[in-house]
Design a protein around this nucleic acid. Structure first.
Lengths: 148, 148
DNA sequence: TAACATACTATCAAATTGATAGTGACAGTT
DNA sequence: AACTGTCACTATCAATTTGATAGTATGTTA
């Protein structure tokens, strides 16, 4: 899909897709949350072509999800760290992972534990207002103007 | 990214990306959750080329997220409805939307209300075990074997 | 001086995308 | 019977994107 095409859409999902609609970007964000920061770390871990990695890192940086930071002046070396927006992407990753565990979960999978409690994390998405699980009650969609 | 390449990855996020790593697929799922079922509905609402729509619907159907159903024998007409796996994708859409609302939320946006309570839905992702918000406590990642 | 490390860029074939036009099966209208 | 319309697509093909491979720039270490 043409990038930046969703930026003015009234749907918040569509707006996120300008960078999200790409598998590499999501995997880069996953790795960034796992602590990777450097070009070579991402490249090796993902087996991604450097041309593609360069482009994805640039987009994620422009979009304010990663931040380029110099970690060595001599030799000149940069790394990529998550911004607040990037860190706030974690719940999306968890939901994607949760879906994958349920419906693509054959074989051995990585597990995510609460480091303090030592228990496996079981994500549940609630509506803070009603306290109900999202999906358990009917939803009403309200358009800002008249168009869908 | 080459499709089906993540199917055997030990990461549940990577596994989901075989169909998720594409903006059109996510928008189709969004529309399916909003009640759209027919080829022409998706095509018009998304302004997507029919060639692409055909391919995306086929993939989502193969992946078990949508189901093709005949809704008219004469004339022969098919529609696409969400499977259980497709319906369970709703929390992912909500998290993506929530992120978009926070970080791409300039201007008028669609709103999602709890139809019974009439209140705007505020999604929160909790760990069911500890009750803590996901992202508020350190996470431990455990690999099934040795590889990352 | 040679090897190594890191973060890339250049090149280019192959695959994918997506715009446009058309098709097949039928229904309804004149 | 002949048109017009609807719907779910397929055919074609130019343009864009992907991604594999090789190379570069800037340094450090042996």
């Amino acid at each position: 899909m043409n990038s930046k095409i969703n930026a003015k859409n009234s749907c918040p999902i569509a707006r996120s897709l300008d960078f999200l609609g790409d598998a590499w970007s999501i995997l880069i964000l996953r790795d960034a949350h796992a602590g990777l920061t450097r070009f070579e770390q991402f490249r090796k871990n993902l087996s991604i072509a450097p041309t593609i990695l360069t482009k994805r890192l640039a987009t994620l940086t422009e979009e304010g999800i990663l931040e380029k930071r110099v970690y060595s002046e001599h030799p000149p070396r940069d790394e990529y760290v998550l911004t607040t927006a990037g860190r706030d992407f974690l719940p999306v990753l968890f939901m994607i992972g949760d879906w994958g565990r349920k419906y693509r979960g054959d074989g051995k999978l990585v597990r995510f534990l609460d480091a303090e409690a030592g228990t496996e994390i079981k994500p549940v998405l609630l509506d803070e207002v009603t306290g109900a699980k999202i999906g358990s009650r009917p939803i009403q969609i309200i358009q800002p103007d008249v168009e869908m």
